[in-house]
Design a protein around this nucleic acid. Structure first.
Lengths: 220, 220
DNA sequence: ATTATCTTTTGATGTGTATCAAAGGCTTTT
DNA sequence: AAAAGCCTTTGATACACATCAAAAGATAAT
């Protein structure tokens, strides 16, 4: 995945992957409170991460797919600060963080890569804050769909259709909405001819309309 | 600030600080879109960071005080992805990120420190997502006050009083609320004898009550 | 296959916060 | 010291989303 390495460096990089681990749908990759030892590179499958308040409220903090790195929440306190749950059968590369640190002292390109991945996560969360703080239900769902599509497209999949790996409730938790509101927004988009929905399957009929909902200023 | 360095290492660390920079109240330390070159360690003063959507909506993503590091949003794309505005006259240490990376390859304790700072920011943003997605207005304000107090206390200031550096509108933007709602929540806390408010000055009369509002499960 | 469980949709109603509006209190400027 | 400009408070009203409820549709279990 990382670019900017020569053949020799790529060999060194293999050192970082200790082993692989399979996680079945519904199972935890790690739990909040678990000792942090490793980052995980998702090879296949789909995850959600979420935090839970002491009184039991759950907030989905992200959805992660193949090629993405998970577990950076654990670095600060040597314990994980969120839960990671597989939403479909998954396989991850276990990368002991001590090894990542050792190797990135020798390989500036790896060091840079690690920094960028963490910075990207910070920037992503900034835009989720914008979403949660300033946008209405339909804007949030449009933003969510566009983001998923863009990431799937970057992996060679279609720009115009996708199969959701999460429930309406999980989407709602991520977007700060109740599942009924998510369902209604899907129905609205469908009525307006913007998308076609059949359960988890979603086909985008009018991507421009979706972008306008996400970013109303485009109307000007 | 960082711990775990010996005298020699501390000398090396001085290399990382290129110079200092003063930022007057209301001025920008950096702007979204600016080329990213450096992280900034706040020596004195108080900042807010915010992102702006294309149609002009602003979301405050954080408030930063002395001893905190700002600018990590720029690493991923070599451009800053948010604005940093001084809410009072401030002075920062400019730390060119290339130097930080060079030096952290030689000093594992610095490397570790950089990783922890970024991870801490990820974890902080996770809890803001919980706040924005799941909590009501008064819970959000209680959480906000408790967080500020805790950080001020860690800097040797009082646990029971503080002077806000930001307006009701900026608090509202951070908490996903309108300024009137923030004002009403302050008034409610004041009526209930939990705090005393006089403009930007806030005194905590009943810290336990505040904690209960933030975390209702404690009532059990 | 058949039952049980989970997920999704849709409707009716309720509520927390936004919006609109106006006045008063600070702060800064001149 | 007066004027101008912000910031804050408080009230009245509106609205977006939550909540409650029920049924239909998938999915998993026996």
């Amino acid at each position: 995945m990382p670019v900017g390495f020569n053949v020799d460096e790529m060999k060194r990089l293999d050192e970082v992957v200790e082993k692989r681990r399979r996680v079945k749908q519904g199972e935890l990759l790690f739990n909040s409170g678990d000792t942090f030892t490793s980052l995980y590179a998702i090879r296949t499958g789909f995850f959600k991460t979420c935090v839970t308040s002491e009184d039991g409220r759950e907030q989905v903090t992200g959805f992660q797919m193949a090629g993405e790195i998970i577990g950076m929440d654990g670095i600060v306190s040597d314990r994980h600060n969120c839960n990671a749950v597989a939403l479909e059968d998954a396989e991850v590369c276990v990368m002991p963080f001590a090894t990542v640190e050792d190797l990135s002292r020798e390989l500036p390109a790896l060091q840079r890569h690690v920094h960028k991945i963490m910075s990207r996560e910070i920037v992503r969360e900034n835009s989720v804050m914008m979403l949660l703080g300033n946008m209405r239900a339909e804007e949030r769902l449009a933003a969510f769909l566009l983001n998923l599509l863009q990431r799937l497209h970057a992996r060679g999949l279609s720009q115009s259709e996708l199969v959701l790996r999460m429930t309406r409730e999980e989407i709602g938790s991520y977007l700060g909405l109740k599942l009924e509101t998510v369902s209604r927004a899907f129905s609205k988009f469908s009525e307006d001819g913007i998308i076609e929905v059949k359960q988890r399957y979603v086909k985008i009929l009018a991507p421009e309309a979706l972008k306008k909902i996400f970013n109303p200023q485009t109307l000007l």
